[in-house]
Simulated assay, not measured.
Amino acid sequence: MRAVHYDAARSFRVADVPTPTPGPGQVLIKVLQVGVCGTDLHIHNGDFNAVFPLIPGHEMVGTVAGLGANVDRFRVGEQVTVNPNVYCGHCDFCLAGRLILCRNAKGLGANTDGFFAEYASVDADLVFSVDGIDPDTAVFTEPSACAMHGLETLQVRPGSSALVIGAGPTGLLLAQLIATGGAASVTVAGPTAFKLETARGLGIENTVLIPRDDAAAATEALLAASPGGDGYDVVVEATGATTVGDMCVPLTRSGGTVLIYGVTRADETMTFAPFDVFRREITIKGSFAEMTSFGAAIAALRAGRARTDGIITHRFPLEEYGTALETLARDKTAHKVVITL
């Protein structure tokens, strides 16, 4: 089968590799589509706990091509997706039920083989049915699950105001879930007009176009757009840009919550005034991927609570994986990039 194969960071080729065979308790999946994520750019550069050699890719939809022994939850031809986040089950965090903090967590497509390939064989307990969901929506299950974990982490107070800075795919998914998860108003901000137009098409009524390189002007515009002019109860950093992170505490109302949701490099830092956090009792939370949110995400996609209309802008075949990465990194017209097989 064909697969993207990395020997080391920034060193990959589309190669012929053996087609996997499902072992006991495994499902063989024919891959249909795989989303290209900002995390894939980090992995390309050797970040985000990447381990090589590696077949990357973690946002997938496919169909069941074969079943290993003792697998009876699926049928051949059924459309499925895979939770790529695997906990060990025996560290102290896992034994305490805090699976997202697993000390030995593995990520399919990050430190063990993923889905930029024609076929993949995975443990059945990681497989979820998305039969009947349009593949262009089902391919967003993993980012929707990450957004669902963000919503679970926030525990939004009913009637709250929320600001999501970042109109990328996961930012828009999280904004929708916050809007249906108790917030009275949700604002999405970003520097790209067409992404904000997509946000409005997905039901986000309040959008603010902010300058890319002027944090002071962006902060002023966002404060002016807040419901009471004094900020938001919830502020989500969904870009991974530290300059955006620096804006979040000043944009948060007293007693409010900042959620760090975007992916940064491990060596990057954000800044805030500790007295401001102390005096105004600001809570700062983090939301990292997910472990147990796939079922809820699929339910939200089926019910239309999280919609994906218009987010996919570019499609490439597997052989053009390099072009897909470059498009995501450099092309200002790109929103969601998908590899089709």
Rank of each mutant, 00 (worst) to 15 (best):
V186C: 10
G23Y: 05
F194D: 12
D113K: 07
P143R: 00
Q155S: 11
G150M: 03
L32C: 02
G322C: 05
K285W: 02
T180V: 15
N104P: 00
A199C: 06
R265W: 03
N83S: 15
M148P: 00
R253S: 14
M1I: 08
D113F: 06
G57T: 04
G166A: 09
R98F: 08
I210C: 01
L172N: 09
G168H: 13
L173C: 12
E205M: 04
L251Q: 11
E152Y: 09
A224G: 01
P24F: 12
N49C: 04
G203I: 07
I55W: 03
A189W: 10
N70A: 14
R265S: 08
P20L: 05
K195R: 15
R10Y: 01
S293T: 13
Y232N: 05
A216G: 06
V80Q: 01
I210W: 00
L101K: 12
F294W: 13
E152V: 02
E290W: 11
K332M: 03
L67Y: 11
S11E: 13
G150F: 01
T112Y: 00
G68N: 10
T252A: 08
G77N: 04
T283S: 15
F288C: 03
G171K: 09
L223K: 04
C91A: 05
L32K: 12
A329W: 00
P22R: 08
G25C: 10
D92K: 11
T308F: 11
V235A: 09
A175K: 02
